[in-house]
Computed example of a mutant assay.
Amino acid sequence: MKGLYCKPGGSEAEPKFVIQETTLPEDLGNHQVRVQVKACGLSPLDLKLLEDVGIQRDLIPVGREVAGVVLQVGSKVSFFQPEDEVVGILPLDSPSSGLCDTIDIDEHYLVQKPEKLSSVCVAGALRDGLCAYTALHTQAHMAAGHTLLVMDGASSFGLMCIQLACYHGVKVLTTSHSPQKHTFLEQLRPSVGVQDPLVARVIPVYNGSSDLLPVVLEETGSLGVDIVIDSGVCLQEEEGPDDVKLLPHKHDIISVLGVGGHWITSHQDLQLDPPDCRLLHLKSASVSFLNPEVWTASSAQQGRYLHILKDIVEKMSAGVLRPQPEEAIPLYEATVAMETVQRHQKKKAVIQL
Results as ranks from 00 to 15, higher is better:
74 G>S: 02
59 L>I: 03
255 S>F: 13
153 G>C: 04
27 D>M: 12
240 G>I: 00
277 C>I: 15
209 S>Q: 12
36 Q>V: 06
189 R>P: 07
197 P>W: 03
172 V>F: 10
38 K>D: 09
146 H>I: 05
92 L>Q: 01
168 H>V: 09
69 V>P: 07
310 K>G: 04
105 I>M: 02
97 S>W: 08
301 Q>M: 14
119 S>W: 11
298 S>W: 14
80 F>G: 06
122 V>D: 05
79 F>Y: 07
50 L>C: 08
170 V>A: 09
151 M>W: 13
75 S>E: 14
248 P>I: 01
225 V>S: 04
83 E>Y: 13
316 M>A: 10
258 G>S: 08
336 V>T: 01
352 Q>I: 10
103 I>S: 02
65 E>C: 02
115 E>A: 13
185 L>T: 06
164 L>Q: 09
61 P>E: 03
19 I>L: 15
321 L>D: 07
98 G>K: 02
116 K>E: 15
43 S>H: 13
180 Q>V: 00
352 Q>T: 11
217 L>A: 13
10 G>V: 00
119 S>M: 11
260 G>P: 09
181 K>H: 12
170 V>H: 08
45 L>D: 04
269 D>T: 08
258 G>T: 04
47 L>E: 01
56 Q>M: 00
294 V>D: 12
256 V>C: 11
137 H>Q: 15
70 V>M: 05
157 F>R: 08
141 H>A: 15
10 G>F: 00
258 G>Q: 06
157 F>N: 10
303 G>I: 06
134 T>H: 15
103 I>E: 01
193 G>Y: 11
317 S>D: 14
225 V>C: 10
6 C>H: 04
278 R>I: 08
270 L>T: 04
93 D>Y: 06
